[in-house]
Design a protein around this nucleic acid. Sequence first.
DNA 1: AGCACGCCGACT
DNA 2: GTCGGCGTGCTC
Length: 803
Amino acid sequence: MKVASVIVDIPTRQTDRPFDYLVPDEWEDVVQAGMRVIVPFGTRLLQGFVIDTKSDTEVEKLKPIHSLLDVAPVLNEELLQLGKWLTETTLCFMISALQAMLPAAMKAKYEKEIHLIQERIDHLHEDVRLFFGDRTVVSWREIEHTSLLPLLQKEIAKGHLEVVYRVEEKGKKKTAKWVELTSTAEQTMEAMSRLSAQAVKQKEILQFLLENGPSFPLKQLLEETNSSLSAIKSLVQKKLVVEKEIEVYRDPFADRTFAKTSPLPLTEDQQRAIAPILAGIEKGEHDVFLMYGVTGSGKTEVYMQTIDAVLKQGKEAIVLVPEISLTPQMVKRFKGRFGSKVAVLHSGLSLGEKYDEWRKIQRKEVQLVVGARSAIFAPFENLGIIIIDEEHETSYKQEENPRYHARDVAIFRGRYHRCPVVLGSATPSLESFARAKKGVYKQLTLKKRMNDKALPPVDIVDMREELRAGNRSMFSRLLFEKLKDRLEKGEQSVLFLNRRGYSSFVMCRDCGHVIQCPHCDISLTYHRVQQRLKCHYCGYEQAVLHRCPSCESEHIRFFGTGTQKVEEELGKLLPEARVIRMDVDTTSRKGAHERLLNEFGEGKADILLGTQMIAKGLDFPKVTLVGVLAADTMLYLPDFRSAEKTFQLLTQVSGRAGRHQLPGEVVIQTYTPDHYSIELAAKHDYETFYEREMLIRKKHGYPPFYYLTLITVSHPEATKAVAITDKIVHYLQKQLSSQAIILGPVASPIARMNDRYRYQCMIKYKREPNFSSVLRKIVDHYQQEINRGELTITIDLNPYMMM
DNA sequence: AGCACGCCGACT
DNA sequence: GTCGGCGTGCTC
């Protein structure tokens, strides 16, 4: 007897354990851990993952596996272990962990249907027969909310109708039809001679296949022989050819060629940095390297040469880059160096395209993956290096279950494969830099820029001064002068507007009323293109108002500075300037991002105006001026990392100027010019920033001095939310050591979302061996209320979003 | 998650 | 006396 332990596709506490199934004899040699199967569960069918096989079980009423979804495991031993580890470190369900490691296309889609039973059709109620018409199957969804439901249920009970559960995959493999000769050349020729004289096309097709076959893609065959499908059909009927479905990959880069590049000679700095990594690769040793290198110091070239060494060993490599900088420029660099050995995974790809890239990895058709966060789960079996570029980026932390950080996963995998993990950044996260200083990570430093160009001088403009001087525009006099100057010289400028925490809201000028979402405690954002007000948290939207709902005044207007508004003002101030605007609105269409950047690169515009997305990776020789319109917009968000984020962003943006022959300049506009994060960013002084910020973190008990966990409780009733949070706080105080600092309950920064009140509790701690079991007990205790859907408790170990 | 099972009130 | 409402607990 062979038994399979299966994790079923229901993410709840009660089903978060393996269920045993009998493996039918015919699959005894096939079923292995890591495969997906379909199993009966209660009355339905579900997708599940085999995590173990064994020869006996305590379970008495074993059901057999219904069917297999894979012929080979989709998760290997390492990834199964990694899944287990994810459940422990992020407190998620096993099924969520397993699904997170696979492309979304492999998730199941469930269909419930009512089938007609042919033999019982005479017994069937008149109305039901009428409803079915000439159909034999009706989807459950169609009748679920109709008056027909009770009648149908009776008929089902009587056995006149049958309920069928179907499980399907979300994404499909893409196939193409091919045509193939069924017999040998001689037999085919002989058959040709027996064809009727009228069958000109059929003979032509056979002849073509004899010369170019024996198999050929159907579509091209029709084109080449200029014939129609009917000719093929006749040949199929005569059994002279067969049609075959052959799997093809969707290729997101099909119509692109990438110029081949070769390794560049390394600078002294680079050589010093690469040596320990190469030694690690050579010896098969796991180490975490923090590569701290100023912008333009050539980190990417170092990455590529280490990858080269890994591939030469016959091993594989993963490169993570932040979603936002996974630009065509970036892809081009890797594709140019490593050609067809590269798979690219990012959110711009369709479900099916991601699935195809994943299968290329699984089939070992590629050796290198460049991708965003989830690419860390690439199913390589012989990893030689993992590189995380811009390691400080918060997008490496997933903000939904499983709430993992790609850096932690990388280190897990690096340890498993005994290979180096390289974290690269010009502005490392405090956590990583502190670990490097302690010697936990090995620090590698790239001090000099490759072309020996000095970092650009930065001017800080105090916008309060501007206001006092009577300048009410969003451009300071200095920035305006410099923009005009570049325009005259024919050089380019980049204007950066950080909109986060500063979106355009609608306010009444008479009574100060701000239009808010009726379901969330957050102001609605004005979307100019569609002339609508939208809630960014629950999706609520409404038409723009022309009269204040509170005081009936007509003096209601839009506040906040959006990119569109900057564009408008630029048009007034510098009408001759050609401006390209890049934000969510202008880049949402596929390929728009790349097109706009290309236009700018070709000099078709003087000014590139944009949000976050232009902060990274752009490298245009003619850019000599970078302007930051409002540096402090995110400085006062309720987030202990806001100073760090501001520093990183300003440093990042400044790095866009003067990367080549022409010297660059940076202008930072701010209302808080003496804030250390702005001052030190202007001086390009990371290390001083690090020291200052560390003092603050230490004083207030934040990472990297303390670990942090955020518990968010949400409930439709505010009093309940407070009471439960309060109980949790008290319980934690009893269970945790006296060193742990437990804060709360306090209302979340967004106190109501989707008509649910949100309260939170923050725990700062150094060492709590029982922490996760304490947290588990809390969730278990409220299980009923959670199941009823009234209550949710979200636990984020190591949060990056405090909202 | 979804479904069966079981316990209460409103009706033929 | 039964039909159907929802609350409770189980699914290998």
